[in-house]
Design a protein around this nucleic acid. Structure first.
Lengths: 189, 189
DNA sequence: GTCTATATGTGGATAGAC
DNA sequence: GTCTATCCACATATAGAC
């Protein structure tokens, strides 16, 4: 009725619970209760609890990596690329705040999918690092240790999910602008 | 033999496990195995799993709040206060990286102690926010939304535990300097 | 301070009826 | 697609011996 499969509904509900208690502390009975059904009924739509985590985390991890791959290979200037990275984080976080929490906090409970997740994360950081390096070599960014820039920027962006849901949906642009200032003006020449 | 009580040893070992899997996924058997004893033996030193979490989280939460209370009430200039806040985070994180992970990720599993933890956290953020406000009113900090400054700074500092253990013990000062640059130059006039 | 044995509860997951 | 009933593994925690 809402265009979602039952499996998708389960994953969305699960992500919300995972955010509040963490994957390990959420039981199939909790999840079922939240869906208004019994735990056994869940297994008509998913094969295991772990499969749900896989669905929740890998979908958004792929979006991030695909996005930054495009940003890096674009013809934009460095500053524009960095702004695009920030905007992607704000937008994906505003759309999927619960999934972002699992991505950050529950990835270690992935089974089958952990390797793929780690590959996606490594590729993401690789592109980000290369954008920063390019910025330094072009003289657009200050000569601060790449890893420090990468860490402090990425940590802020990855944790937006803690903070964005508190704000209204409307002020995405305001958040993007503020982050552009706070994050970029500390590192730009 | 090492100056630690058995209870302290248990809490230290527990914190290390909590960091890698999260509180909920660590069993008393895991913890006991890591200590080289049986699970039942743990209960001669602690009364419950939850008590361990309380010990781990509240000790470090108190240190942070006490520290920033002193920094705020000192006669230092704003820039020095902000640098002192950064230095406190780097030092406490370097000393207690595992406890920092629990502080960030496992506080929702506190029982008895949750209220106290939330009070400490609120007080911490209050002092931090007031330092930022004072900086803005004195014209030392840019006129960026306080909450954005607070969020992006605090999130970086709170997640140092992910990053600091990778570095050697030696370069605390280098990290403090880099963070001073990255975090402060984006917000200072 | 640690052990073995065990009580008691709850977790993920399956079988089969409707 | 959901239910009831149930299996079985594993969780926290206690009792009492050494």
């Amino acid at each position: 009725m809402n265009g979602l499969t039952r499996k998708q509904e389960i994953c969305i509900t699960a992500a919300r619970l995972f955010k509040s208690k963490g994957y390990a502390a959420v039981t199939m009975r909790d999840l079922a209760a939240e869906m208004g059904i019994k735990a056994a009924s869940l297994y008509n739509h998913i094969s295991s609890k772990e499969e749900i985590l896989n669905e929740v985390i890998l979908a958004i991890a792929k979006s991030f990596t695909k996005g930054i791959r495009n940003i890096r290979s674009s013809e934009d200037k460095i500053t524009e690329k960095l702004q695009a990275v920030i905007a992607q984080h704000v937008n994906l976080t505003a759309d999927y705040p619960f999934e972002m929490a699992s991505l950050n906090n529950d990835w270690m409970h992935l089974g089958e999918g952990k390797k793929e997740y780690l590959n996606l994360r490594d590729e993401y950081e690789l592109h980000f690092r290369e954008i920063i390096k390019q910025g330094k070599s072009e003289g657009v960014l200050k000569n601060i240790d790449e890893e420090v820039i990468l860490f402090s920027t990425l940590v802020t962006l990855r944790n937006l999910y803690i903070w964005i849901p508190k704000k209204g949906v409307v002020d995405r642009d305001k958040i993007i602008n503020s982050l552009n200032q706070t994050l970029l003006q500390g590192i730009e020449i």
